[in-house]
Amino acid sequence: MLIKVEKLTKSYAGQTVFSDLNLEMTKGEIMSLVGPSGCGKTTFLRCIAGLSFSTSGSIYVNDVNITNSKADERPVVLMFQQPLLFPHLTILENVTYGLKYGKNKSKKQERIERGLAILEKVELAALSGRYPNQLSGGQQQRVALARALILNPDLLLLDEPFSSLDPSLRSSIRSWVRDFLKKEGVTALFVTHDREEAMMMGDRIAVMKEGIFQQIGSPKDVYQQPKSPQVAEMFSEGLVMEGFFLSPDHLTLRPKTSLKAADTEAFDATVEYKILKYGHTFYHVYVHALEQRVVVLSNHEFLDGEQVELCYKRISLQTYNKNHPVDEGKSSKKLSR
């Protein structure tokens, strides 16, 4: 394992920020860490970066314990929400900052060559002599990425790096960043509160709430087979019930008058409104019995306010993940035992 976090716990002023966090990452893997604001995800990231220190537990990178080393001694680089390019330095000088002042100082000629090479990769070599304030927000984030990656960190941490960009730019730059990280084989831990962004960026997703990893797994697993009602509420778009979960892909809408098939159950629901997206009609319906809203794709035509039935096959009703444990690795161990 390249990265191994064991039982990491942090409390501050008598309150637990997060507790007993375990995490393992292989080389080249991108992990999304998603959770509501205040769940402790940023603090967790800062502890791995060395900007904040855990109360107990340990962090290993390449089997080296870095739990107590200072930020500047760790093979880990953090990218903040803001690009934080040093305004008095040009783009090239910004990118080579870590090479000049970091632990492994390299020669001037080498610094410049490597700086230009990485700027070439992020497609900004032409702007190397400019100052940060002459660049757009997206360009600045790319420079910040280059400045981090030039150090070949074992782990790149990203703390909602796209949240300061406007929405249209955000979607294009995040797919660009993902492709770039994959191409360069960078191991990255990516923090976000945006579910869609987490699914898009991560090979795996860690869902965090109230200082605990609720579930770690592939985006599809977490989406379709949430481990707990909390995860389901936060991450999935299906119906959450006490003890059971209904994935949205198993839900269909039909008019109220229809007959009932033997293997099918239905909830009474009201259509609130509809939107057209990707060539389909999506209905936002309110399920009275559960006091929940859900979005369902349907080919039928329904009116706003119409009473409908939300149907599902009994067989698709799933329990919270007794059969889909937290981590594939661990589950296989358990099974073999």
Binding site: G50, A71, D72, E73, R74, L78, F80, L84, P87, L151
Partner: peptide, 24 residues
């Protein structure tokens, strides 16, 4: 965050002071 940015890039606190804080 300016200081922290310098630190995660590998500069020790004295270097960060002279190369980031003083210019800013």
């Amino acid at each position: 965050e300016w200081e922290e940015q310098g630190a995660v890039l590998g500069a020790n606190s004295q270097t960060v002071f002279w190369t980031v804080m003083v210019p800013l």
